Computed example of a mutant assay.
Amino acid sequence: MKKTDKYHLSQDDTFLIETASPLHDIGKISIPNEILNKPGKLTEEEKRIMQDHAVIGAKMLENLLFYKNEPLVKYAREICHYHHERYDGKDYPDGLVGDA
């Protein structure tokens, strides 16, 4: 909020984002421990499995029976899904470019 007015976030929005952010990797609970805790480099297949955590986490929150329409959960779902996206489009899960 101090650096740009581009996103028009209220203090309530920033509080919700700050509160929801720790859930960004919740989808990792579905990743096998052998991959999650593997020392060293992952194989290409293991990388793909690891990358699935972003979509899995978002789907977990989307499928909640209660509270899924609460602003906090909506922010958490977005954060889970998009936290690995990069501005240049070279990351996952959607490979979004720029402001997309």
Rank of each mutant, 00 (worst) to 15 (best):
M1C: 04
K2T: 06
T4N: 05
T4K: 08
T4D: 01
D5Q: 09
K6H: 04
Y7N: 11
Y7T: 00
H8C: 04
H8R: 10
H8P: 02
L9V: 09
S10N: 01
S10L: 06
S10W: 05
Q11P: 03
T14M: 14
F15K: 09
F15T: 11
F15Q: 07
E18A: 03
T19R: 12
A20P: 09
A20R: 07
A20I: 07
S21L: 15
S21G: 14
S21F: 15
L23T: 13
L23V: 07
L23P: 08
H24A: 10
I26Y: 08
I26K: 02
G27K: 10
G27Y: 14
K28Y: 06
K28I: 01
K28P: 11
K28V: 02
I29W: 11
S30K: 03
S30N: 03
S30T: 10
I31V: 10
I31Y: 00
I31T: 09
P32I: 01
N33M: 01
E34T: 12
E34D: 08
I35K: 00
L36A: 12
L36S: 12
L36C: 03
N37H: 10
K38D: 06
K38G: 09
P39A: 15
P39S: 15
P39Q: 15
P39I: 14
G40K: 00
G40R: 06
G40Y: 04
K41P: 01
K41A: 13
L42H: 04
L42N: 05
L42F: 00
L42A: 00
T43C: 08
T43P: 10
E44A: 11
E44R: 03
E44Q: 04
E45P: 11
E45I: 13
E46D: 08
K47C: 09
R48F: 02
I49K: 02
I49W: 05
I49E: 06
M50V: 00
Q51C: 11
D52R: 15
D52L: 14
H53W: 00
H53D: 04
H53N: 07
A54D: 05
A54H: 07
A54P: 05
V55A: 11
V55I: 15
I56T: 13
G57R: 07
G57D: 00
A58G: 02
M60A: 04
L61E: 00
E62R: 08
L65T: 14
F66W: 13
F66H: 10
Y67A: 10
Y67Q: 09
Y67W: 14
K68V: 05
N69L: 06
N69C: 02
N69H: 12
E70Q: 14
P71N: 15
P71T: 13
K74A: 00
K74N: 02
Y75A: 09
Y75R: 10
R77H: 01
E78R: 14
I79S: 00
I79T: 05
C80I: 04
H81E: 12
H81I: 15
Y82W: 04
H84Y: 11
R86M: 08
R86Y: 13
R86A: 13
G89R: 09
G89A: 07
G89D: 05
G89Y: 12
G89L: 10
P93G: 05
D94H: 11
L96T: 06
L96Y: 09
V97Q: 09
V97K: 14
V97R: 14
V97W: 13
V97H: 10
G98A: 05
